[in-house]
């Protein structure tokens, strides 16, 4: 039969096709008529996972922080008390918290400054093959083992490592020595200094900053930049008034990653850096060797509270207005 013949010549085909029959046909029709039903069906497993396994265990952990440990028997006393939080506020523990927060803030700031130009290039200029190369370059470090990367950095930063050697060749060894002589950031070599910890953190978390900023910049129409320039704004003014405010949700998203990942990490400062503790290491030590689960739980509350304040502050500053 000629499919393009006038309709009348084709006889009378039925208007509605019959249901394909069986359970599958009935289900297809049901899902079409009640799309919410399908939605609930699809969302139920992940919501159950999130609600019970994830939030539930987190809640159990928080609950532990209100218990205390019997210092003689080492047994957990399951009675509501704020004693553990009192322990948390001892000078040595506050030191750990301040050290971790300062490190996380510096790592976040440095990541944002390094990531922005890279993300800007990728969002504005990279096309086709260059864009693929960008994604590959940003993601590639994420494919290799975290431990391998950290140990690689330990070697790079070591006294006999390539960085010291390179700076020596460039006759800049004195600069490194001067830096390492400084209090707080220094040490006997980069691999056992806070500077080394900082470098490793920035390297490991940088992709988590680049990708959200790139996604945010990609959503900024190019003609907004042109419009700003057209209205007399210099490139610097356009960056401050248009690009930065519109990319801010991406920067905040990225900083949530870098900030919270640094707050919780216990491996990098253990391998690279001074032997001073970070929050993650304190949690590890308290729940493991010391067997003090309540204090470990109280330590984990700290990053959660800090992130809560951080998000609240970011919202107050209007970081999410352009979403």
């Amino acid at each position: 039969m000629n499919r393009l013949a006038p309709v009348a010549a084709q006889g009378h085909a039925p208007v509605m096709a019959p249901s394909s029959g069986g359970l599958r046909g009935a289900l297809s029709d049901l899902f079409w008529r009640r799309p919410r039903f399908l939605l609930v069906l699809m969302l139920a497993p992940p919501l159950l996972w999130l609600g019970i396994v994830y939030i539930g265990s987190l809640f159990a952990l928080l609950l532990q922080s209100f218990f205390s440990i019997d210092e003689f028997s080492g047994l957990i006393n399951r009675q509501f008390t704020l004693k553990t939080y009192g322990d948390l506020l001892q000078a040595a523990n506050v030191d750990i918290i301040v050290r971790t927060v300062v490190m996380a803030a510096l790592v976040t700031l440095a990541s944002a400054i390094i990531a922005f130009p890279i993300a800007y290039y990728a969002a504005r200029y990279a096309r086709g093959r260059w864009k693929a190369l960008f994604y590959l370059a940003v993601m590639l470090p994420l494919w290799s083992s975290y431990l391998v990367k950290v140990y690689a950095w330990k070697l790079i930063l070591a006294k006999e490592g390539i960085l010291t050697w390179l700076l020596g060749k460039l006759h800049l060894g004195w600069l490194l020595d001067a830096w390492l002589a400084l209090p707080y950031v220094g040490g006997s070599s980069l691999s056992v200094s806070a500077t080394g910890t900082f470098i490793a953190f920035v390297y490991v978390w940088l992709p988590f900053m680049i990708l959200p900023i790139q996604a945010a910049l990609e959503r900024v129409p190019a003609n907004l930049v042109e419009a700003s320039s057209d209205l007399g704004a210099s490139p610097g003014q356009t960056f401050r008034n248009i690009l930065l405010p519109l990319a801010l949700p991406g920067v905040v998203a990225g900083s949530i990653f870098t900030f919270s990942l640094t707050l919780g990490d216990y491996i990098i400062p253990q391998i690279i850096g001074t032997s001073r503790l970070f929050i993650g290491m304190a949690v590890y030590a308290q729940q493991g060797t010391a067997g003090n689960i309540p204090l470990a739980a109280a330590f984990t509350v700290v990053p959660i509270v800090i992130m809560g304040f951080y998000l609240w502050g970011a919202k107050r500053l209007g970081a999410f207005d352009a979403l």
């Binding site: 129409p221 003609n223 042109e226 419009a227 057209d230």
Partner: peptide, 14 residues
């Protein structure tokens, strides 16, 4: 000292 009215207006959304 030339200004443009863009095709899709290009108003600053924020």
């Amino acid at each position: 000292n030339v200004n443009t009215v863009f095709q899709d207006y290009a108003l600053f959304p924020h």
